[in-house]
Computed example of a mutant assay.
Amino acid sequence: MRSEGVMIRENEARRTGVDPLLWIIPLLLSFFGIMMIFSLTSHTSLEEYGSPFALGLKQLQWLFVGLGGMLFMYMIPLAFWRKYSGVLWLFALVLLILTLIPGIGIKAGGARRWLGFGGLRFQPIEMLSLAVAVHLSRLLNTSEKRGLSAFFTVTSPVLFISVLPLLFQPNMGGTILIFGLVMAIHVNCRGWGWPILFGGAGFSVFFMLILKEGYRLRRYIAFLDPWEQPMDSGFQVIQGLVAFSNGGLFGVGIGKGLQKLNYLPAAHTDYIFATIGEEFGFIGTFAVLFFFLLWAVRACAAYKDASDPFLSTLVWAVSVSVLIPMFINLGGVLKLIPLTGIPLPFISYGGSSLLFMWAKIGLLMRVCREVSLQ
């Protein structure tokens, strides 16, 4: 017999049309990420900020900002996005172009990917992924073009205009993210044919871009054989694998990992999944993957419930814009693909990523609500 609490939650979900797991799972992942950031940054936060809790508290503050962003997106009717999706996309592009202007864009690690507002840094690529998801969903559902015409007159212009500033930053990870997102949206609306053909051509272009730039070539070599230069380009890859090895089945325990002690670069950002493997073992990493899988299953259910083509495409696009960064990050950390610098959604340290991930959750919840009212 089901408990009264379970029945109440099911009735509430039925009334609002929102599956509670669509926001509960990201909330659990976010709190777990904050706990890991506290664990991984206590020594560096003490040295740099005078408090071992500085970066963890900062991420907690961004979580509250992100939850505010979720509520904001949830309150906006979808009719607004049907009408102004192009404005959102153009605004995101303007911010992306501003990163390329000296004196405005912030250069770090050889790339211009950030804008600064006071003491805050913001990556416009996070807004762009949301804008592309909304705008291309609308375009493909209002256009009557099919086949080659739809691909080259609707999908390709959005793709080309969106990735062009990313190539100048340069931001290969962001380029792959937008490319994959655009292809996925087109597949949902117009089928596999042209995305498969264009995807093969795109892979060739990406490979040439890798060979053109020295740092990208070093990353590719490190991906193929990190032990060839274990103290240089292969160092981070090897230390990530060492972290997984140290963790074993159950992990060494929260706060007891050694790789965070200046052995593993980007331990709380790009490589946070490896440190989860060290401190929580295979059980911890499996739990993270299980929660992402469960979230994807619930998002798939919301996709099937949406009978309106625009709404179903929007659910698909938003869900894919959350899952593609996860696959890119895990692929790089697990040495399945070259590392690209994409954070792990909801878990990695980073304010702009967390904010826009939660904005996507709010938009997804709004779609579910309007679907239930149809």
Rank of each mutant, 00 (worst) to 15 (best):
L330I: 14
L159V: 00
I185E: 08
G248A: 04
Q59A: 03
P170E: 06
L136F: 12
I176G: 02
Q61S: 10
G331P: 08
D308G: 01
L354H: 10
R216E: 06
L294S: 12
M357N: 15
A111D: 08
M70A: 15
P265D: 12
L93Y: 12
W295N: 04
L71S: 11
G50W: 09
V297Y: 15
L67E: 07
R219K: 05
A222D: 06
Y263D: 08
V322S: 05
I196K: 03
I276H: 09
G214E: 15
R216M: 04
I185D: 09
I342D: 04
M183R: 00
K256R: 13
P170W: 09
T285I: 10
F160C: 08
P170T: 02
Y263T: 01
G193I: 04
Q236N: 13
K83L: 09
R14A: 14
R146T: 13
E47V: 07
W358N: 01
G118H: 08
G109T: 03
G103W: 07
G109R: 03
Y303L: 15
I97Y: 15
N171Q: 06
H268A: 04
F356I: 02
Y220M: 15
R14V: 00
L164A: 15
S245W: 13
Y49L: 03
A108M: 10
A274F: 12
I101L: 14
S39V: 01
R298K: 14
S39A: 11
A267Q: 08
I37K: 01
P309I: 01
K360L: 02
S149G: 00
L40V: 04
A201D: 06
S156Y: 14
L21G: 05
Y215M: 01
Y303I: 02
I276F: 08
L71M: 13
T285G: 14
V94F: 15
V132K: 02
L21Y: 14
R2Y: 08
L100D: 10
N246F: 12
L93S: 04
L211S: 11
A201Y: 14
W227G: 00
G5Y: 11
G284Y: 11
L211P: 01
F91Q: 01
G234V: 03
